[in-house]
Simulated assay, not measured.
Amino acid sequence: MTEYERALSTMGDSGIHWIDVLFRWCVVLLVDLAEVLGISYEALNVYLFVFLLPLALLCSGLLNIFLYKRFRDSMFEQMSLYFWSASFQAALSWCWGASSLSLRL
Rank of each mutant, 00 (worst) to 15 (best):
Q78F: 09
Y82L: 12
D13I: 08
F23W: 06
F76N: 13
I16H: 12
V31H: 01
S85V: 06
S100C: 06
R24V: 00
A98I: 03
T10D: 09
E35A: 10
A91H: 08
G38W: 04
E3Q: 05
Q78D: 11
E77Q: 06
Q78R: 14
A34G: 02
L103S: 02
S93F: 00
W96D: 01
D32H: 08
G97I: 00
L44G: 00
D73V: 01
L63T: 07
V21L: 13
W94T: 01
E77M: 03
M1G: 14
S99C: 03
F66L: 11
F88I: 14
A86P: 00
G12R: 10
I19H: 12
A90H: 09
C26T: 12
F83S: 03
G61H: 05
V31Q: 01
W84V: 11
W94D: 01
P54M: 10
S9R: 08
L29H: 06
G12Q: 07
N45G: 05
F71A: 11
E42Y: 09
L44C: 05
L48G: 04
W18L: 12
L62V: 11
L67F: 13
L63F: 06
G38Q: 07
T10H: 08
G15Y: 04
L58P: 03
D32A: 06
L103K: 02
L30K: 04
F88T: 15
I39H: 04
M11Y: 15
S87D: 14
F66T: 12
V50K: 04
G61F: 04
A98N: 05
G12S: 10
R24Q: 03
E42L: 15
L63Y: 08
F83P: 00
F49M: 02
G12I: 04
L58K: 08
I19V: 14
S80D: 14
L58T: 06
D13A: 11
W18Q: 13
Q89T: 01
L62H: 09
F88M: 15
G97Q: 01
L92Y: 00
L37S: 05
D20N: 12
L52F: 13
F66A: 12
S100P: 01
W94F: 15
F66R: 15
T10W: 09
A56P: 03
L63W: 06
W94A: 02
T2Y: 12
F88A: 15
F49Q: 01
G15E: 05
W96T: 02
F88E: 10
E42C: 11
C95H: 08
L8Y: 00
I65N: 10
I39G: 03
P54D: 08
A56Y: 15
W94N: 01
E35P: 03
F88D: 06
L81I: 11
A7S: 05
S100A: 09
